[in-house]
């Protein structure tokens, strides 16, 4: 059974769909727990700090992005916790996934920025290549 589920999200529609799949996986076992991981991208840090009055306001803004996802999990009656990490999304998710023991990693197929993806390659692609646990990509 999938007991330790890692759900990597960025606040996009795709990650909301990923959250729904995570709920389905989690409902298979009574002991399952979902860890929501959100990476605050280094490249956005300057912009986000500049546009927030304080670090508290910025934290709040980020948590707000996760709200629909938290609601989905809460509605599915799933135990979950939230981890906000800082870094470059792909490598940071991989590092976190490989450091802790997870039975499966769930991630949306595509994030927020289509243009960036064309040049840099998608985060989900990197995660599939480098994560040690099974990965579920949600379209």
């Amino acid at each position: 059974m999938y007991n330790q589920i890692l759900l990597a999200v960025d606040g996009s529609d795709h990650s909301e769909r990923a959250a729904k799949e995570a709920v389905k996986l989690a409902s298979g076992s009574a002991e399952s727990q979902v860890t929501i991981v959100f990476v605050a991208d280094y490249d956005n840090s300057k912009n986000e700090v500049l546009h927030s009055g304080s670090s508290m306001e910025l934290d709040l803004k980020r948590r707000k992005k996760l709200q629909p996802i938290e609601e989905t999990l809460a509605a599915g009656d799933v135990k979950y916790k939230v981890e906000v990490l800082h870094g470059t999304p792909g490598p940071t998710i991989v590092e976190f996934a490989n450091k802790e023991k997870f039975d499966i990693l769930v991630i949306g197929s595509r994030g927020l920025n289509g243009l960036q993806e064309m040049v840099l390659g998608s985060v989900s692609h990197k995660v599939v290549k480098r994560a040690n646990c099974p990965v579920l990509i949600v379209k």
Partner: peptide
Amino acid sequence: LLTANIVDDMTG
């Protein structure tokens, strides 16, 4: 100080 805020945020 703006830069310090950015580094604070990046490094948590």
